[in-house]
Nucleic acid binder design. Structure first.
Lengths: 354, 354
DNA sequence: CGCAGTTACCCAATCGTTTGGGTAGCGTGG
DNA sequence: CCACGCTACCCAAACGATTGGGTAACTGCG
């Protein structure tokens, strides 16, 4: 029981005004003011008539016309490495939700973690006159953030942080520390990290959080124990192959900074005839919906992906409002599952090898 | 107080015109016409001056103003069940690519396969005055398509089809047939289907393609062998649990109409002490990047997801141009891996372990 | 009764672009 | 010499919403 909608042109303010015999400006004031400005605009009887007719006719304001006048589009641009990465897709869901609640629309584009494409996509967004940008793909040392700042374009970072700019991320350092504690406590002493892409703060922070805590605990970990890799399954598999081919002995536990890389590592481990959780412990990151459901359930650090997206919107709105904002680092939580279950793991492997 | 950034206004046509001492309309004609109209608009010398200055000043037309005049926004709306579903996210990547090539922007929203939300999101898109919609979440029997048609709103379907409306999909029936042939050829006679959501044509077509071919081959398959489920990992696990708990004997092969459901099924199978590929064959659908990389690599039917997205854009553009278009059904391809490689695979694995 | 204040409106300019319709000035053919 | 057709522009009216600035009519007060 909505809109007339016989197609044709959408209803305009002028149409409504003509039908009511009043001026379009009066209609406008009634419709878009939160009773603050409306008070002087029209009698409550008129206001009611206006609102009723608008509802009946299914009036919706033309955003192009409105933004022409107001210089605001009520739209954000979101750039991510790729939406086919479940992590970013989930963050985007949070963005979409929060944006919609605030009556904003969002454009999303994939940059494939390619700096040139990042810039190109950002320009496309700006040509669309978005009110602000959410960048989910920023690289360590990127020049783009400085450029945008110089052009005083409102933006915030998501997923990855960049010192000096507002961001909504997981506290990845703490995430790495949680894994270090867990592996140490379960008796592992020979560990390795599948570290992800060195241009992503997520990878860097998770890795350094792990390594620093590991050293604090009295563990040993060398550069050779840290293998950089792509974030996807294949990257994880390749990195694990590297680790398993080492002459100096293979680790009893592997921390992959991403669930997909962890899954790839699990594949590599199995094809070497070893069993995950028994011969080698594996821990992932993000606790994507897959982790708990895998044939061998994967221990993983849960990052609040949806919340990260929602908060990014909140931050951006405040930046647009001219506020000075602080970056957010949301707390992660470790979920221990069969892939790294307990002290027995290391022992059984010794038995197997010996 | 208004704490606005010192953001300088973008360059306008008028700015350019003033600087060149010519009329804005001349600048407009030079800039946006493909030399056809430009012919009579300005001398080639003037045209060159205009283009040069536009480039120097980084002029980009205000899309709001343009669309106010032209009644076109050069934007599409895309609605999907959820972008955190890798399949839809990949299709969207194709959409984004093809749309960008055609100078279109895209809004995407998640409908969570909820009819009410579908309608709501569609209205939001239309309020944004998109030139057309790509619906990736249509349900069998949905009224929405008829409504949109009645309002003569240009739209196409993606991923899922709906008889009588243009769509870009995989040939899911053929996909199901491929799996039936494969399982029959490898000697399976007791099979089951994890069928997905009964409101999705993908699920229906893959299932009926499989079942019909299976019957043609002389196989037997009853209603109890077909378990409807959610498309995600958990749904697959639950469905597999149902199958494994049956009193009438468990199947030797399971066809899950979605890779994620297949992964969930693999988990359930393992937790029953059975080995995928040895005790029970599993075949998935879509051949997502995960499938080949899993600890036990998953056989899967590859659907051309990116291409489906790209073609959806092409279709929509033609619909907008007023053409009568035919639906597309892109050919799938089966990739056989360890999860259903038959007796040989199991033997080689035994040899390796023993 | 006069005047200030309030109510409930209307008016018109404006945002940037597009586009149908001029027109001045020149060259050409008859 | 005039009619005519080019070329290379200019002009102005849209498109729909917003908003600062009116103003007529009424109310209340002294």
């Amino acid at each position: 029981m909505r809109a007339e909608g016989t197609g044709r042109q959408p209803i305009t303010l002028k149409d409504l005004a003509a039908e009511l015999g009043i001026h379009p400006s009066t209609v406008s004031r009634v419709l878009h003011s939160t009773s603050e400005i409306a008070r002087g605009a029209a009698s409550s009887a008129t206001a009611e008539r206006v609102r009723k007719l608008a509802r009946e006719r299914g009036y919706s304001p033309d955003p192009g016309a409105a933004s022409l006048r107001t210089r605001r589009t009520k739209a954000f641009g979101v750039i991510v490495p790729r939406l086919s990465d479940l992590v970013l897709a989930t963050m985007y869901e949070g963005v979409e939700e929060a944006a919609a609640e605030a009556r904003y629309s969002t454009f999303v584009m994939n940059s494939h973690d390619n700096p040139e494409e990042q810039r190109r996509k950002a320009e496309i967004m700006l040509a669309r006159r978005v009110d602000g940008l959410i960048l989910g793909d920023i690289h360590a040392g990127s020049e783009l953030v400085h450029e945008l700042q110089a052009r005083s374009i409102p933006f915030v970072l998501m997923s990855r942080r960049y010192p000096g700019f507002p961001s909504s991320t997981c506290d990845d350092v703490v995430g790495g520390e949680l894994v270090a504690d867990h592996l140490w406590d379960t008796g592992h002493r020979a560990v390795a990290v599948i570290a992800g892409e060195p241009f992503a703060s997520t990878a860097l922070d998770r890795t350094s959080g792990f390594r620093d805590r590991w050293l604090d605990l009295g563990g040993r970990i060398s550069d050779a124990d840290i293998v950089w890799s792509r974030f996807d399954t294949e990257g994880g598999r390749e990195a694990a192959e590297t680790l398993l081919a080492r002459r100096g002995g293979i680790p009893t536990a592997v921390f992959a900074v991403n669930d997909f890389a962890a899954i790839g590592a699990m594949g590599a481990i199995r094809s070497h005839g070893l069993t995950v959780g028994q011969d080698i412990a594996v821990v992932g990151f993000n606790d994507t919906s897959l982790a708990a459901q895998l044939p061998i359930p994967l221990s993983s650090v849960r990052s609040p992906m949806l919340e990260i997206g929602r908060r990014a919107v909140e931050l951006l709105r405040r930046v647009i409002a001219g506020e000075q904002v602080e970056s957010l680092r949301l707390k992660p939580e470790l979920f221990i599952r069969e892939s790294s279950a307990g002290v027995a793991a290391a022992a059984s492997r010794d038995a197997l090898v010996g």
